[in-house]
Every structure is written in C-alpha cells, then in structure tokens.
Design a protein around this nucleic acid. Sequence first.
DNA 1: ATTCAACTGACAGGATGCTGTCAGTTGAGA
DNA 2: TCTCAACTGACAGCATCCTGTCAGTTGAAT
Lengths: 229, 229
Amino acid sequence: MRRTDRLFEILQLFRGGRSWRGRDIAERLEVSVRTIYRDIDTLVASGVPIDGERGVGYLLREPIFLPPLTLNIAELEALHLGMEMVRQSADVELADAAGRLLDKIDAVLPSDRAGRDHLGEMSVYAGGGGATLEHLAELRRAVAGRQRVDIGYQRLDGQRSTRRIRPLHIEYWGRVWTLTAWCEWRDGFRVFRIDRISAVGPGSGRFAAEPGKDYAAFLVQMEGKGASR
Amino acid sequence: MRRTDRLFEILQLFRGGRSWRGRDIAERLEVSVRTIYRDIDTLVASGVPIDGERGVGYLLREPIFLPPLTLNIAELEALHLGMEMVRQSADVELADAAGRLLDKIDAVLPSDRAGRDHLGEMSVYAGGGGATLEHLAELRRAVAGRQRVDIGYQRLDGQRSTRRIRPLHIEYWGRVWTLTAWCEWRDGFRVFRIDRISAVGPGSGRFAAEPGKDYAAFLVQMEGKGASR
DNA sequence: ATTCAACTGACAGGATGCTGTCAGTTGAGA
DNA sequence: TCTCAACTGACAGCATCCTGTCAGTTGAAT
C-alpha cells in the first residue's frame, strides 16, 4: 500500500470515532508500528487534530474532516452571511460554533478575504438577546435524544403553566423559535415559543415514537386545518 | 524546491486571480515546462478547479481555496443551519450559492453525515418568497460598487414614489431586509424596506463617499436620535 | 527502584517518484 | 496546406522517500 493511501486509511479509522493504539493500527494495515508512528506524526503536522495518550491510544479530537475545497465569491459571502445569522439568532452553543467555524475559515484565507469585516456593507441584526434563548440548546438535545421534558411556560396573556411534553421538532421563523411537542397532560400537539419557555427540567426519561403523536402526524393535522406554513 | 512546495507555489500564483501560461510558470519556478504540465495534472486530479486553454494559459475557476479543515459536530450543525437560513431569506444568488456550498460539503462528508436531511429535527421557515427580494442582489452590487440607483418604492400606505439614491448599507433584521441610503432628492438619509422596492434602475453612475452623507454619518445621526438597534 | 509497553532516533537497504530531454501530437490561425 | 506554440508520451538517470530493525528513552504503574 502506498503511503498516501495508508494515511487516508488511518483517517477513515479515526472517523469512526473510537480510539486506536499504534500497535493495532499497524496490525490492521500490515506495517510496522514505527511506520504508524511516522504516519501519525505526518497527519498531525498537516493539521489533523489527533490526540494520543499512552495506554489509551490515538483518536480524532474533531471527527469531521473536510478535504481541500474551492469556493467562489458568492459561496464565501453566503458562508459569512449564514454564520452571522446563526451567531445572532441561535443559542449560545450554535453561535459559538459558528464563530469558531468563521475563525477557522479566516485563518486559512488570504488576508484580503479574512478578517472581522467579512460582510462588507451588510449587517445582520437578528439577535433577540441570549437570555430569551437560554433553553434552545437543551431543547435541541431533548428533541434529538427523544427525551421528555417538563417545561415552565408563560403565555402571551401572562398566564404561567407547566407541561410535560414530548419535544418533537424545532422551527425557526426568522425572528422567533418554536418547539412543536406532544403535550402529555393536554393529550395533544402544542407549539411553544421558545423565548417564552421559562424553565426546562427532566421529564421522566425517553419516549418512543408513537403513531399519531409524532411530528409527521402533526404535519398531517396541520394540513387538515389548512394552515399555511 | 521539493515538489509539494512547488505545487503550493503554483496555487499561490493562481490565487492572485490572473491566468498563467505553462512556460511562464516554468520560468518563474525554474523547472522545465514538462514538470509544470505534470504539476497541473496533479493539482487537477486532486480536485483543484484549474481551467486551461491554449494561447490563454491556466487559471483557477474558483479563486477561494480552503485547505483541509476539521470541524466538530456543533460547527457542522451551525454550518447547516446557517446555509438553510441563507437559502430561505436571502436573494436567489446567495441562496443558490449556499445550496452549492452545502452540496460541496455533503459530497465530502461520510454518508452518515451528508444528505438532504442535514438539519435533523429542526426546520427553517424564514422565506418571504423570492419575488419580494428580486432586487436584493442588484442592490448588494450597487452598494459594493458605490453606484447610484433610481428606485421605485411603495410605502406602507400604498403611495408610490421614485427616488435617486446612494445605496450605503444593507441590513437583515431576521424577517425583513432594509437598505440604508442617502436620498439625493430629499437630501437626507432614508431607510427602505427592500421588499417594497418595486424597481431598480441605473442612476447616473458612481458616487464618491461624502462626509456627512455616508453610513458612518448615518450611524452617528441615529445615535443622536437615541434609536435602539 | 523496577518493570513494561509506548514511543523515538539512527541506520541500511530498497522502493518509488521526479526531472529534463526529445520526438511526436494537437489545435488554432494564417 | 502550412506554421507554430502548447502539450503529451516515453525514456534514462538521478533524487528522494519509505520501511523495518534495533537500541535507547520515556512515563505510568507497581
């Protein structure tokens, strides 16, 4: 096997997410362990974020590897605009991630294209303040992990309530984030504005998808009502 | 010079934007033209979009080159979310560029991370329809190129007018796009909602930045009025 | 202090890649 | 049809890189 092919194979092993000892990689790829140590050195030197620890092995610190890409001007502008939109309108975790991604991009662009003023004569004012979205990140995780949660909610008329819900889907409407959920106490679908959710707590574990109470069923129900989305 | 260093130098030459003949590159890097033909073949084979034509030379079809990058999960989510926001809320040019960028990313991701459903249990509904933003792209260009334009505008009360303006800045507010301009007929700053601009025409060429009539002056004036942004 | 596995530096030998040259091909223009 | 520059295939010779081995180092655990 040629060296460049082997380097690629090592990256594919690491992409799987687990850690690998040098000796194990050597056996797998049928070379000496000395060769694997050199290969890992080469990958690290070219920027691949590999962590290694005696007794533990090696693994990729950041699992998503993008090979060299070429973009045109409009694609770079779209990237800058989109990251600014996320920085201002999503939760702090996604906003920070967008910022880090821009930093990575800026670090490798020529100096005439990098830098803070990457939007030129455009500005984004889409923020609603971090506080109103303090629960977005954990709700995203609850949706992804199919975890019931108990939420504290404050309706427009000021009335407060608590609900035990199955969070099904999150929507972004340009200024407002909403959560579509199945409410176990009202036994029906409800849509909550995330900026009015005042508390999120654990709500008795995970839930299984149940026909008639999932997001697909919600969409069918909404179509029946003729609601325009 | 080692070959890999020379390949990098060739990329740097192309990043300058002009075209280069094989013979000129060979002279510059002090190797034979045969070697340069091999180098260009190698760059093309690894995905660099180089165009070549007899008598013209070689140049980079897409001038922005990103070397290998590694991202974590949140950064990839931010990227997907941001590109979807652009696709739905910006003009067709930026929306298409965002789509192409996502296609490029998906093409190089492992299959478990690529694909259309990249937002998982989130949706973006930030579109206002392409028609209302039909002038955004040309206004972006007018701002960038400091070109006066004549616009047809329809105010909220239905009244229509035409204005000759110096377009200074574009703002995105989460649902609405606005254009900040110096209106030459009213001799003052005005802010126009881009979805209410019904026509854009050439407006007697370029304008020079004029103290008191640029975007910085506008911001000072807005601060004076205590307006909250 | 000792042990053991992970890791590194140095070396020899082999393998692979690279370069310039040259004859030939290609394509556009006259 | 001819000319000319851009480009390619083939070749020999050289240069560089890669690999496995082995002695030594390192660091954690005992």
